[in-house]
């Protein structure tokens, strides 16, 4: 673990600090790279970036076992269109040429191992990625990965869940260098009926006791109302499936982003 902040961690934490200074939670929209197509993705990302404090880009994966049907289908469609690791990083490089908003790359761990962790980190850094979000890697499974990321200036984000024990929260929180990602419900990603965020305040409070980094909350946040609930207690609000659905249904992604971003104000 590095004592000083990496370039990526600095940029991510500065984004949280700016939001905090304006008395709002950081707004972190998510989009699957190469969705709906590699050609159409940049315009969708641009629309999100106009309102985002941080953009989370998902690396399409064949077996996304933490994702619900909406993001699964988006991944399948992006992969069918040829967006895997190489293309995802190209798309991110192009975004970084136009925007200064920090970018976090969400990826399952197998694509990292397939390329080789050191090489993957190098390629990600070169493309302009600031941090990695690792949904299927409990930090104690690979103690070297965070260090390899840090060598390339990248921050890492691990996840906690409502089932996490205090001991696990402590372990995960101490491993995070960018921000901590708290999963709002027991379940996979996606909007749900009557989304129950009842477990969020206690979980965030527990996380804050151990985390030196900001705490963002995601899963099941789909509109301004749920964003407002989360923003009341957390440093950041992650919204993913709602944007995928908006793209699929041909709705105005920018308008939805503006609406949810407004909901992040306290």
């Amino acid at each position: 673990m590095t004592a000083t902040l990496t370039r990526g961690a600095e940029r991510l934490q500065a984004a949280f600090a700016r939001a905090r200074a304006e008395d709002r939670a950081a707004f972190i929209p998510f989009m699957t790279a190469g969705y709906p197509t590699a050609a159409a993705f940049p315009a969708v990302a641009d629309a999100l970036l106009r309102h985002a404090d941080i953009l989370e880009v998902g690396l399409p994966y064949s077996d996304p076992l933490g994702d619900g049907p909406t993001i699964q289908r988006a991944s399948e469609q992006a992969l069918a269109g040829g967006t895997s690791t190489r293309r995802t990083l190209e798309l991110i490089r192009a975004l970084r040429a136009r925007h200064t908003v920090p970018i976090a790359l969400m990826t399952y761990v197998n694509p990292i191992y397939a390329v080789g962790p050191r090489e993957f980190m190098r390629l990600a850094q070169e493309a302009g990625v600031d941090g990695l979000i690792l949904p299927d890697l409990p930090p104690d499974q690979d103690l070297e990965l965070a260090d390899l990321a840090a060598e390339q200036g990248l921050a890492v984000t691990f996840l906690i869940a409502p089932t996490s024990t205090p001991a696990r929260v402590k372990l995960v929180a101490e491993a995070c260098t960018g921000f901590l990602y708290a999963v709002s419900v027991t379940g996979v990603t996606g909007a749900r009926e009557g989304s129950a965020l009842v477990e969020v305040p206690a979980m965030v409070a527990l996380a804050r006791r151990h985390a030196r980094v900001p705490v963002a909350v995601g899963f099941g946040v789909a509109d301004a109302a749920t964003a407002r609930q989360v923003a009341a207690v957390a440093d950041g609000v992650v919204v993913g499936s709602a944007f995928i659905s908006a793209v699929r249904e041909g709705r105005d992604v920018g308008a939805l982003a503006a609406d949810i971003a407004a909901g992040c104000a306290r």
């Binding site: 996840l159 869940a161 089932t163």
Partner: peptide, 8 residues
């Protein structure tokens, strides 16, 4: 290598 949610 699973989501943290399953570790407990």
């Amino acid at each position: 290598y699973v989501p943290e949610i399953l570790i407990p």
